[in-house]
Amino acid sequence: MFRNSSFAFRIFVLAVSGVWVPGPGLWATAGSVSLSEAWELSRRYRFTEAAEAFEANLGTASAEAALETKFGFAVNLINRQPKTRANIARAGDLLEEISVTAPASDFGISARYFLGRIAHLHLHPPRIEAGIEHFRYLVEHHPRHFWGQAAASKYGFLLLYSQIPPQERERLFRELEPLAENLTSPYLRSNFHFMLGTAAVRFDLFPERALFHFVEADRGGLIKGRARTDGLLRVGELARELGEWELAARYYRKYLEEFRRDPPRDLVRDRLREVEAKIRERLEGAPGGGNKGPHELE
């Protein structure tokens, strides 16, 4: 009723109720929204409006834009509230269609990534094996594509956090490690190392390899906040436990330099004093400087 009401009527309601009645702009129809605007709605987490905007373009998009429109609609449909099995199933059908029609195109590859996501994250019960297969395909067939590189960490998560015997997890861990070399993006490589290091710590696998992966994650560029504090402190702690005193000291100092107001600072200072004492002991005990850990030789 309000949508078509006159300005005078809205002024009247405003004056009486004290609340402004929004104009027609608020109910702008989705049909007039461009693909770029629809993506902007997605970026702002307005999944329902974004899905409507993409859906409105489904029949009218040019052949070139058809894949993108269908893909945009499917991705937003997954998150549209209320989340229903029917929406997930429809999104899955659309993504399947895209990945079969144009498997090597940008949208075909990204559709495959989201098929993996649907399998392990949106279905109940989750289909972990199907998720693994989709991500494995991307890692093997599109290792340098944006979504192929993003898939590497997801693939690792699904494999390592499965309910499997410890020996099987160790084998998978070893099998995953070389994948890091295929990742051309230093940041996604850093993410992959971080995923491996974290899994190694959680499942108590190879502390030396955990240390290696956290050092590599830092080298690739742990960017900020929690990942950075965790990464720096984890290297310090693992190196201290493994007797790599110089490496531990270096990372404790790095942390103290970068995080000047964090609650663990005094604890880190205590740790630093402890490893510095060990370094002094070793230097005094071994005139040649003592043995250095593998990371300190690099």
């Binding site: 956090y161 309910q163 993006s185 940041y187 996604l188 965790d230």
Partner: peptide, 28 residues
């Protein structure tokens, strides 16, 4: 350009890796 330092895409991936790791660990 997407691989430049501090690109928002990387910052989001980094945040997602943290959340996702926690989620897998809880589920496991």
């Amino acid at each position: 350009r997407w691989d430049r330092p501090r690109d928002p895409i990387h910052m989001m991936f980094e945040s997602q890796t943290m959340h996702e790791g926690d989620r897998h660990w809880q589920r496991y």
